[in-house]
Amino acid sequence: DETGKELVLVLYDYQEKSPREVTIKKGDILTLLNSTNKDWWKIEVNDRQGFVPAAYLKKLD
């Protein structure tokens, strides 16, 4: 059920640097789980959840 889920576009590649982070690729469109922290957003990638720098993402309307 995708209702109410926010999507984000990945602006730059990011390689995870800790187990709490996930790797993302430029151009991916992913589900945003939590954006309350202005610097690190929690997203879902391939059934994995983790954090990436918010500056690497853009919210889609």
Rank of each mutant, 00 (worst) to 15 (best):
D1Q: 14
D1R: 07
D1Y: 12
D1C: 14
E2S: 14
E2D: 13
E2P: 12
E2T: 14
E2K: 12
E2F: 14
E2R: 08
T3M: 13
T3E: 12
T3D: 11
T3G: 13
G4M: 14
G4R: 15
G4F: 14
G4V: 14
G4Y: 15
G4E: 13
G4W: 13
K5Q: 11
K5T: 10
K5E: 08
K5G: 08
E6S: 14
E6T: 15
E6W: 14
E6C: 15
E6R: 14
L7I: 07
L7D: 04
V8S: 02
V8D: 00
V8F: 05
V8Y: 07
V8L: 04
V8N: 00
V8P: 00
L9D: 01
L9K: 06
L9E: 08
L9A: 05
V10S: 04
V10P: 00
V10Q: 00
V10F: 01
V10E: 00
V10I: 03
V10H: 00
L11E: 03
L11Q: 04
L11R: 05
L11A: 03
L11M: 08
L11S: 02
Y12V: 09
Y12I: 08
Y12D: 09
Y12F: 13
Y12E: 13
Y12R: 15
Y12G: 07
D13R: 03
D13W: 03
D13F: 04
Y14H: 03
Y14R: 06
Y14D: 01
Q15W: 14
Q15A: 12
Q15P: 05
Q15Y: 15
E16S: 15
E16Q: 12
E16Y: 05
E16T: 08
K17I: 07
K17N: 10
K17L: 09
K17Y: 05
K17Q: 15
S18Q: 09
S18K: 08
S18Y: 07
P19Y: 08
P19W: 07
P19Q: 09
P19R: 08
R20N: 14
R20Y: 14
R20P: 06
E21P: 05
E21N: 05
E21W: 04
E21A: 05
V22G: 02
V22T: 04
V22W: 04
T23M: 03
T23L: 02
T23K: 04
T23D: 03
T23C: 04
T23H: 03
I24F: 02
I24A: 05
I24Y: 04
K25Q: 09
K25T: 10
K25N: 08
K25A: 08
K25Y: 14
K26Q: 10
K26H: 06
K26S: 07
K26D: 02
K26M: 08
G27I: 01
G27F: 05
G27D: 06
D28W: 15
D28F: 08
D28H: 10
D28Q: 15
D28N: 09
D28A: 13
D28L: 10
D28V: 06
I29R: 05
I29G: 00
I29D: 00
I29V: 11
I29L: 07
I29P: 00
L30S: 03
L30G: 15
L30E: 04
L30P: 03
L30Q: 06
L30V: 15
T31Q: 13
T31K: 13
T31V: 15
T31P: 15
T31N: 09
L32N: 01
L32C: 09
L32A: 03
L32G: 00
L32Y: 01
L32V: 07
L32T: 01
L32I: 05
L32W: 01
L32M: 04
L33N: 02
L33A: 03
L33E: 02
L33D: 01
L33G: 01
L33W: 06
N34A: 09
N34T: 07
N34W: 07
N34G: 06
N34I: 07
S35N: 07
S35W: 11
S35A: 12
S35Y: 08
T36I: 08
T36L: 10
T36R: 11
T36W: 08
N37T: 06
N37W: 07
N37V: 05
N37G: 09
K38W: 07
K38C: 09
K38E: 12
K38Y: 08
D39S: 12
D39L: 14
D39H: 15
D39Y: 15
D39A: 12
D39Q: 13
D39T: 15
W40C: 06
W40P: 00
W40A: 02
W40Y: 07
W41R: 00
W41E: 00
W41P: 00
W41H: 02
W41I: 02
W41A: 02
K42F: 15
K42A: 08
K42C: 11
K42H: 08
I43F: 00
I43L: 07
I43R: 00
E44P: 01
E44W: 08
E44I: 10
V45W: 08
V45F: 14
V45E: 03
V45L: 09
N46T: 09
N46R: 12
D47V: 06
D47M: 11
D47E: 13
D47H: 11
D47Q: 12
R48Q: 07
R48V: 07
R48Y: 05
R48A: 06
R48S: 06
Q49F: 07
Q49Y: 07
Q49L: 06
Q49R: 11
Q49M: 09
Q49H: 09
Q49A: 10
G50E: 04
G50S: 03
G50V: 09
F51H: 05
F51V: 07
F51R: 03
F51S: 03
F51Y: 14
V52C: 05
V52I: 03
V52Y: 01
V52W: 01
V52P: 01
P53T: 01
P53A: 02
P53S: 02
P53L: 04
P53Y: 03
A54K: 06
A54L: 02
A54I: 04
A55Y: 10
A55Q: 11
A55T: 12
A55N: 11
Y56A: 10
Y56R: 04
Y56H: 10
Y56S: 08
Y56P: 01
Y56I: 09
L57M: 04
L57K: 01
L57V: 08
L57W: 01
K58P: 01
K58Q: 11
K58M: 14
K58I: 11
K58D: 05
K59A: 06
K59G: 04
K59Y: 07
K59D: 02
K59I: 14
L60D: 03
L60W: 08
L60S: 04
L60V: 12
L60E: 04
D61P: 13
D61K: 14
D61H: 13
D61G: 15
